[in-house]
Design a binder for these strands. Structure first.
Lengths: 163, 163
DNA sequence: CGTGCATAGTTGAAGCGTCAACTAGACCCC
DNA sequence: GGGGTCTAGTTGACGCTTCAACTATGCACG
């Protein structure tokens, strides 16, 4: 039965499960550590990408692509952060449709505190629990996954669902 | 400024980011592939763990621990699956507080189809895009993360938030 | 045996993410 | 230069997840 299906070998399955569970645990732990300070991980990522950008500002869609979130989600998240005064919208000068999101001074100040907590969290739950070789192996595998994902023709990232 | 903080090296940051983005992309891709069939990845995980259990039944809390979800979330998810007839509740014989969740025949049938699609998805987006060595490196690193997480005293998994 | 505390699971409200529909500006091209 | 189409972003409704509060049972200790 089901002859055509290439199931995973026991070893492959073990690694796949380790990946699946560990990512859930990591996400939980990292988010919990930031949540204590009143910020979610995805909000942190948004602020953090802005802070590294040229002029601390980015187009909404560029931001969405960077942090791998839907444009809609970025709109909502940005609205929340804007209410807190950490981020500001302005029209894009070169494209009437576009919106630039900019980190405010207040936002930069807040981010400093978050960054300290976050890097400690990343170390505690990931970087410092691995040997340098393990971290390298992880990083290289994940980069390969990204490269494949970027190539994949059925990676619409947004538009027409492929159902 | 911020002398006490051990920031990540450029290399460490690169690997950390590769991990962070790739997990988001993978989650998206795997969930999308299942979503087309009308099931979410976390629902799949629940059904799949039940199917592998002794007698295709598990205690709610055991299930929650296995798939790394909160007990509350498992309650809600199980309710959804129960409405679809794929899962059934019964009181635990040995503990008056406990509840056993059991895969129904209908559930097992449905799961077969989902499993075929899911394994193809896992291969396409993860297993088959990596060399065996890369997959092994990934698996071992993630297992190390899990081990560290299990050891960590501030891993309440549920109770009193450590804020 | 009964008081106190821990554990198992549920519940409902609030918040976040997704999805489809929508507005508006750009681009193409005859 | 006015359709047709594509891209950028927003909106609101719906659904899932989280969180805190709650019920009920087990367990320890006097």
């Amino acid at each position: 039965m089901d002859e055509g299906v290439r199931w995973l070998s026991a070893q492959e399955q073990q690694w796949w499960r380790a990946y699946l569970r560990a990512t859930r645990e990591l996400d939980l732990a990292l988010d919990r550590d930031l949540q204590c300070l009143g910020l979610s991980l995805s909000e942190y990522e948004l602020l953090s990408m802005l802070s590294e950008a040229e002029g601390a500002r980015l187009r909404m869609s560029a931001l969405a692509a960077l942090i791998v979130q839907s444009r809609s989600r970025v709109t909502h998240t940005a609205a929340r952060l804007e209410r807190r005064g950490w981020v500001r919208r302005s029209p894009a000068p070169d494209d009437g449709r576009g919106v630039l999101l900019e980190l405010t001074e207040q936002g930069r100040d807040a981010l400093e505190g978050f960054a300290v907590a976050h890097v400690a969290s990343v170390r505690r739950h990931l970087v410092d629990v691995l040997t340098p070789q393990q971290l390298r192996g992880l990083g290289e595998a994940m980069q390969a996954v990204r490269d494949a994902y970027a190539q994949d023709p059925t990676t619409p990232a947004e538009p027409a669902g492929p159902c």
